[in-house]
Design a binder for these strands. Structure first.
Lengths: 242, 242
DNA sequence: GCCAATTCAGGACATATGTCCTTTCCCAAT
DNA sequence: ATTGGGAAAGGACATATGTCCTGAATTGGC
C-alpha cells in the first residue's frame, strides 16, 4: 500500500460517487487516497482495524480462512464498496481478509476521526446503513443459496454472474485475476469437484474449456439450471427510503 | 396479531431496553405494542413491509422458503432484536418469513413515521447500525461455518448453543417450541440425515434420546467436535465505537 | 530448444448427504 | 380396550462431494 498524494484525484472520486455529503467538511482533511497492487492485502482477518476504506477503483476479493486452513471466498467487490464498516460500528477485530485482485484505489479514513466528527452526522450514518444493509442482503441470499442448492446450480449461477456485465460470452480462467480455485472457494466446494462439474457442463455443451479458460456457450442453458437464482451483485439504486 | 393497548407496558419495555433515546419524542405517539401467539406469522417473505418491529419479549424464528418448497431456518432470536430494519433502509420486499415460536411482544412503528421523524435522528440511525452490523456479523459467521463444516460439527455446535444458556444439560425435542425438523432446517440438512448423525452421537455417548427428546450427556465431547466454532448468539456489549 | 518446477485435469476411492419408503410407536377419538 | 392417523426413527439406495494421488500440460530459466 502506498499513499497517493493527489488531492485532485481524491476529490474527483468523492464527486464521482457523490460522497461530498457523506464526508463533510470536518472529515475532509483526514481522508487519504491509497493505492494497492494486485495481490496486496488491504486488511487481515483477526487484526485490529484502524481505517475505514472506501473502494473507488479496481476489484477486491474478500475471504476468510478457517483454523484448519480452508479458504472461503466470500465475495468479489467493485466500487462503490466499503471495507471496515462493520468493524467500525461494532468495535471488533477484522472479520475477513481483503485482497486486491487488480490495481486498486481506496479512500481511507481513521476510525478516530470518523468517530470524532462523524458519529452524529446523519448523512454518514445513512450511507453506512445503505452499504451495510446491502451487504447483509447479499450475504443473506448467499447463505440460503449455498445451503439449498448443489454445486452444479451454484456454478451455473456464478458463471452467469461473472460473464454478464463484461463482454458477450466472457471467458474466465487462471491469469484473469480470478482463478479457478478462487471460483471453487467462492462456490464453497473443492477444486476437484469444481472440475468435475465443469466437465459435466462441457458434455452438455453449456461451456467449453480452452487452455484453462472457461468459455460460456449457452447462457440460456445455464439460466435454466440456475433457475432465477443469481449471485446477486444487486446494487440497489439506493436511498429509496432513507 | 393483536394490539396491546397498554401504554404503561410499552414504556416499561422502552426503559428496560434503553430505547428512550432511540425513539425520541416525535416518534413516541406512533409506537404500538403488539402481541403474537406461538405459530403466528409476524411477516411473510416477499410481501411489502409496513412496520419496523422491535422484539421485546418471547422467541421468534426466521426462515426462508425456496421456490422448490425447501425451508431454511436462518435463526432463532430473542430480545433485543429488530425485524424489518434491512427492508426499511433498502425499500425492498420482506426478505424472510418471521414466526413466533412462543408468545411474543413486539413494539411496532410504521415506516412512514420512522422516516418522517427519524431519518435525521442520529441515535436511531446508530441503533439501526448496531443491530444490523450484529446481524451481519452473525450471518457472516453462519455462512462460513455452514460452508466449511460437515453436519456433524454443525449439530454439535447447535446443541451446545441451545443448551448453554438454559438449564444444565437441557433437553430439546418436539413440543419444546423448537422441533427436530426445525433443527434440521436450521443446520441446513435433511431430517433424515439429522437423525443419522444423532444416532452417531448416541453411539459415542455424547447425547441420549428419550421419547423424541435429545439430552446432552457430554458437553466437552461436543465441544471437541465443534472445535471452538459455536453458532454465535454473539450479543456484543454494543456501542464501543459509535 | 530442453529440463525442472509448477499448475492443471482427471481417476479411484471414501465419505457425506439426500430421497424414498417402511416400520414402529404414541395418542386421540370412539 | 380398539383402531386409525400421524409423527418419529431408521433401512436401502442413489447422488453429491471430499481426499489423495497420478499423469498431462504449461511455464520460466538456462
Amino acid at each position: 500500500m502506498k499513499e497517493i498524494q493527489d488531492r485532485e484525484q481524491l476529490n474527483h472520486y468523492l464527486r464521482a460517487f457523490q460522497l461530498d455529503s457523506v464526508f463533510h467538511e470536518p472529515l475532509l482533511p483526514h481522508l487519504s487516497l491509497y493505492g494497492f497492487e494486485q495481490g496486496d492485502l488491504i486488511c487481515t482477518q483477526g487484526q485490529a482495524p484502524e481505517y475505514l476504506y472506501v473502494l473507488v477503483n479496481g476489484k477486491i476479493k474478500i475471504y476468510t480462512t478457517s483454523s484448519e486452513g480452508k479458504t472461503l471466498v466470500l465475495s468479489f467487490k467493485t466500487p462503490l464498496e466499503v471495507i471496515g464498516d462493520v468493524e467500525y460500528v461494532r468495535g471488533t477485530p477484522i472479520l475477513n481478509t481483503v485482497e486486491a485482485v487488480s490495481s486498486v484505489h481506496m479512500i481511507g479514513i481513521q476510525y478516530r476521526w470518523l468517530h470524532k466528527y462523524g458519529k452524529d452526522h446523519a448523512p454518514l450514518l445513512r450511507f453506512l446503513l445503505e452499504i451495510i444493509t446491502q451487504k447483509f442482503y447479499i450475504k443473506s441470499n448467499s447463505l440460503s443459496f449455498n445451503l439449498m442448492h448443489p454445486v452444479e446450480v451454484r456454478l451455473a449461477s456464478y458463471l452467469l454472474s461473472v460473464t454478464s456485465d463484461e463482454s458477450d460470452s466472457r471467458l474466465e480462467g487462471q491469469q484473469s485475476e480470478v482463478s479457478l480455485s478462487d471460483a471453487a472457494n467462492f462456490i464453497g466446494t473443492s477444486y476437484r469437484h469444481l472440475n468435475r462439474v465443469i466437465r459435466q457442463f462441457c458434455n452438455k455443451g453449456l461451456v467449453e474449456r480452452d487452455k484453462g479458460v472457461i468459455v460460456v456457450k449457452d447462457r440460456n442453458g445455464l439460466s435454466a439450471l440456475a433457475g432465477h437464482n443469481i449471485y446477486e451483485h444487486h446494487r440497489g439504486k439506493g436511498g429509496t427510503r432513507l
